[in-house]
Amino acid sequence: MKSQEKVFSRKSAPERSARMVETIYGCKWSLTVYQLLANGINRPGEMVRSVEGLSTKVLNECLRKNIQFGILERQTFNEIPPRVEYHVTEFGGKFLRIIDALEALQDEIDDDE
């Protein structure tokens, strides 16, 4: 009997996107930042004032990670005093749909328990 030729190779997780999801979920404030942005709160000072327990240092680190991944963009205005706003990029919108799908999946799991 002839053995079947192997057609498939071992599948591994997509390296960059898996790391991105892991990093975002690892940052306990990223999901809160997305919620703030969805509600029109896009300035860092207002974000810190809107969320109990969120410090400027932690927020800046979270925002920096999201910018590096291309999920958020930073817009600086040439004004005095300086003004900075953050917005979700086109890629970020796609990424947030994945996050929403993961949350829906978790809700379904929770309902089954």
Rank of each mutant, 00 (worst) to 15 (best):
P14I: 04
P14T: 01
E15A: 15
R16W: 15
S17G: 14
S17R: 14
A18F: 15
A18V: 15
A18T: 13
A18Y: 15
R19K: 13
M20W: 07
M20G: 06
M20E: 04
V21H: 05
V21F: 13
E22R: 15
T23I: 11
I24M: 07
Y25N: 00
C27V: 13
K28G: 07
K28E: 10
S30A: 11
T32E: 12
T32L: 11
Y34T: 09
Y34D: 07
Y34W: 08
Y34K: 09
Q35F: 07
L36R: 06
L37D: 03
L37A: 03
L37T: 03
A38I: 13
N39E: 10
N39L: 12
G40N: 01
G40C: 06
G40S: 08
G40E: 06
I41F: 07
I41E: 06
I41S: 07
N42M: 08
N42S: 05
N42C: 04
N42V: 09
R43Y: 01
R43D: 05
R43M: 04
P44Y: 05
P44N: 00
P44C: 06
G45A: 04
G45M: 02
G45F: 03
E46R: 11
E46I: 03
M47F: 01
M47S: 01
V48L: 02
V48M: 03
R49E: 12
R49L: 06
S50F: 00
S50W: 07
S50C: 05
S50E: 08
V51F: 02
E52F: 10
E52L: 11
E52P: 12
G53E: 04
G53Y: 08
L54E: 07
S55N: 04
S55K: 01
T56C: 12
V58Y: 13
V58P: 11
L59A: 03
L59K: 00
N60L: 03
N60Y: 10
N60G: 08
L63R: 06
L63Q: 02
K65N: 13
N66A: 09
I67V: 10
Q68M: 13
Q68G: 13
Q68A: 15
F69D: 02
F69N: 01
F69M: 05
G70T: 01
G70W: 02
I71F: 00
I71A: 01
I71Q: 00
I71V: 05
L72T: 06
E73L: 08
R74M: 13
